[in-house]
Nucleic acid binder design. Structure first.
Length: 801
DNA sequence: GCCGAGCAACTTTTT
DNA sequence: GTTGCTCGGC
């Protein structure tokens, strides 16, 4: 009876494809969900359907979302449909769910349940220490902490086979002179560093972000008892944003699917924007190959955007070669044309947006209905300033998260140490904060004393006085260490039984942290102190909430997750895994300021995409990099455009301020990819390009405020006729003979252009090939004759004069 | 061991 | 422009 009711209800609120995706619950299912096609709706209703019809018990459901915020939203929406039972479902990010698995079963791998999660900053500090110990040259341009961190990150997110191939047993190739080492010193360095880094993490009872995934996979792969516990339990598995999963995450899913294949994945290959982080589109493109029986459902009706916006986004994404062909359609009206505006500099761009928003608000629009999307966080500042000037409320998303602030991290370090005394990074962070006279010398001696025993973190303080004196520590230094030891011991014992808020208060009291902040920098003290109390407040809030959840779980007999975590430890985990994007913005009433990445999954009636210039968006690295990098930028552009419901405005500037000076920029190629009939220049723009300035810039507006006076040309390629605005580059070849070349490749290298080469002297360009940094020019030099050289070594002759 | 001055590197995107 | 780091003087 209930089943039939549920089906009838679903039929009413879902379209036929959505209905199929929501109710086809057994066996593998791939949902290819175009932007704005209601995929969250499908996931929510599917979950509700499973619970409501009794096909699944709450604890049998494992649902993976991309962010904690998305998980929270899913919970809330499902709860509204089926009540509090959903609280016992496992819903979270891959990292969060993996951590949960490891808290329960990680002891099999040598970690205690109170292990600490190191974020990127912690990981880099630890790497730095390891590299110092291995005597790497700190001045090396190639083997930097950041480069090594990135390399390790990539290696770990690609790692298969349970991660066994990483970390141990590679010391024998540590001379850096093996075959590969000759070719790639960074790889050789990583081979030496990684085992030490991994060992240091293990000794600290700590994991970095990728370890969470890797070790969970290792547990499920190599420990059958652990595997049975989870694979036997989760009978329905769902994954959102599947296009952005990496190899390890995919393997993790497969490891859970031993007894059944009830896996539904939802995604859109056109919205894959995390390749740089190890995401592998192959997971979604090859799903039907891995699961030949998979039902494939395509959601192609867009419910979000006007027809013009959809047409523009489709035109852009169509230029990518590696994608599933789809046909997104809408029943919506054309709507307003896409606005395109070109400003002189960043300030003008921000002023234009702020003014436009301010006047719209004056006419009754809501600030929260607007969003400003940019490529990189650094672009946000000008917009913050402009909105403040205009009195427009805004919400800055991303950027430095609350939990990344110095004062917050200090307190968190004490708390993490109280929960896990072995954490070396936290110990080093607080050992002399606030100043207590324990400097580098004392710390080095302490470590020397601990060395043979392998003690880490606060445990080093537990050594007897004689041992400390034996490494040359003075009585006064030992006294200071003892005082610290007493503090940390007290905190550690409090952490076992006292409420989390009390532990936090004790930290602040015992080390006089407020006094420290006042002394540290009086100018910022007030704000920092406020943040500290905000932290205490959020711990209290969290504690109240977990009490409620625990009570709820106690009612739910089969909700077996009596987790081994105290509220304090649970809070610390949340702090580690919560990004700036996860904080609650649902109450936010201001204009959203966010990166394009951060806008994924959101929608706004009015969207401004700013920084539409070559080198900004697409980013310089993408322009100079491989064609795949550019395709990812284009997907990012597609994601941005499809956030818009009613109006979309694209803005670029001619002069972009980059640390140091102003850069002359070309309009983003994406502007040139918009179809004519959906674009209109923003005639209401109060800014005109300054008179008398000539530059390679082509203003997209003509004097009448109608369609930009852009010359067009047609290129024949592979039987296709492709039309380009003359100011654009064809995206996959680097042709000479028409369009200007991107400034970031060094200038305009048309045939006939005179250029200067440092060793070969002056010559004339004959032809060019390749893309970005791999552009090569064939040049006729006066002395040397015809030579082919890399474009990056060549300047235009005018420029060099 | 502490602190201030001067300098380099930084900017892609985040769990 | 900013932040984090090194170096030298106290």
């Amino acid at each position: 009876m209930a089943v039939i009711d549920a089906l009838e209800e679903l039929r009413e609120c879902l379209n036929p494809e959505q209905f199929e995706a929501a109710t086809h619950v057994d066996g593998p299912t791939l949902v290819l969900a175009g932007a704005g096609s209601g995929k969250t709706r499908v996931l929510v209703h599917r979950l509700a359907y499973l619970l409501h019809t009794g096909r699944a018990q709450p604890w049998e459901i494992f649902a993976v979302t991309f962010t904690n915020k998305a998980a929270q939203e899913m919970r809330t929406r499902v709860e509204a449909l089926v009540g509090p039972a959903v609280r016992s479902c496992w819903i979270g990010t891959f990292h969060g769910l993996s951590a949960r698995i490891l808290r329960l079963e990680g002891e099999r791998l040598g970690y205690t349940p109170n292990f600490t999660i190191y974020d990127a900053e912690d990981a880099k500090r630890l790497l730095k220490r390891v590299m110092q110990a291995l005597e790497f040259d700190p001045a090396s341009k190639l083997v930097t902490v950041a480069a090594v961190h990135h390399a390790i990150d990539r290696a770990k997110s690609r790692s298969i086979g349970g991660g066994k191939d990483i970390g141990a047993g590679q010391e024998n190739r540590s001379d850096g002179l093996d075959d590969e080492g000759r070719k790639d010193p960074l790889a050789a360095a990583v081979r030496r560093i990684l085992p030490r880094y991994q060992e240091a993490l293990r000794q600290s009872n700590a994991m970095d972000f990728n370890d969470l995934l890797r070790l969970a996979l290792e547990l499920l792969t190599h420990h059958p008892e652990a595997r049975e516990r989870f694979s036997g339990r989760f009978r329905y598995i769902m994954v959102d944003e599947f296009q952005d999963t990496n190899r390890v995450q995919y393997d993790l899913l497969r490891a859970l699917l031993v007894d059944h294949d009830n896996l539904m994945v939802v995604g859109d290959d056109d919205q894959s924007i995390y390749r740089w982080r190890g995401a592998d589109v192959a997971n979604i493109l090859g799903f039907s190959r891995d699961y030949p029986t998979a039902r494939v459902v395509k959601l192609e009706q867009n419910y979000r955007s006007s027809a013009h916006i959809l047409a523009a986004a489709n035109a852009v994404i169509r230029r990518n070669s590696r994608r599933h062909e789809k046909a997104l359609w809408t029943e919506a009206d054309d709507g307003r044309p896409i606005g395109v505006a070109i400003m002189e500099r960043g300030q003008d761009e921000a002023e234009f947006v702020a003014q436009s928003v301010a006047s719209a608000i004056a006419e009754g629009e809501q600030p929260a209905d607007f969003a400003v999307l940019y490529r990189a966080n650094a672009q946000s500042r000008l917009f913050e300033e402009a909105f403040r000037r205009h009195g427009v409320p805004y919400t800055l998303m991303g950027g430095t998260s609350f939990f990344e602030r110095m004062e917050v991290k200090d307190i968190l370090a004490y708390l993490r140490l109280a929960v896990n005394p072995r954490s070396s990074q936290d110990f080093e962070r607080i050992v002399n904060t606030p100043s207590r006279g324990i400097g580098d010398k004392t710390l080095a001696r302490l470590k020397a004393a601990a060395e043979p025993s392998g003690l880490q973190g606060a445990l080093m303080l537990a050594m007897p006085d004689e041992r400390l004196a034996g490494v040359g520590l003075s009585p006064s230094a030992i006294k200071k260490l003892r005082a610290l030891h007493a503090t940390l011991t007290t905190l550690a014992s409090m952490a076992k039984s006292a409420p989390a808020v009390e532990v936090a208060r004790a930290v602040i009291d015992r080390v006089d942290y407020i006094g420290h902040l006042e002394a540290y920098d009086p100018a910022s003290a007030d704000e920092r102190i406020e943040n500290v109390w905000e932290l205490v407040h959020s711990i209290a809030e969290h504690e109240a909430l977990t009490d409620a959840t625990a009570a709820n779980e106690a009612l739910n007999a089969r909700a077996t997750t009596s987790e081994a975590l105290t509220p304090l430890a649970a809070f610390l985990e949340r702090a580690s895994l919560t990004s700036a994007f996860d904080l609650d913005h649902t109450q936010a009433q201001g204009v959203a300021l966010t990166t394009l990445h951060g806008a994924k999954g959101l929608e706004f009636p009015h969207v401004f995409m700013v920084g539409m210039e070559e080198g900004t968006f697409p980013s310089r690295r993408a322009v100079e990099g491989a064609p795949e990098d550019l395709e990812e930028e284009r997907r990012l552009c597609y994601v941005g455009m499809t956030r818009a419901m009613r109006t979309l405005t694209l803005i670029g500037v001619r002069l972009r301020w980059v640390y140091g000076g102003e850069d002359l920029r070309w309009p983003s190629r994406f502007l040139g990819e918009l179809p004519d009939h959906v674009v209109a220049p923003c005639s209401e723009s109060p800014f005109e390009a300054p008179k008398g300035r000539r530059s390679p810039w082509v203003d997209l507006r003509d004097n009448n405020g109608s369609r930009p006076s852009v010359r067009r040309r047609t290129v024949e390629r592979g039987g296709d006729r492709i039309e380009y605005d003359d100011l654009q580059e064809p995206q996959d070849t680097h042709e000479v003979g028409g369009s200007p070349i991107l400034p970031s490749t060094g200038g305009m290298y048309r045939p006939g252009v005179r250029v200067f080469h440092n060793t070969l002297g002056v010559g004339t360009v004959e032809s060019a090939d390749g893309v970005g940094s791999k552009t090569y020019l064939t040049i006729r030099f006066a002395q040397e004759g015809l030579r082919r050289v890399a474009a990056r070594f060549v300047r235009s002759a005018e420029e060099s004069c």
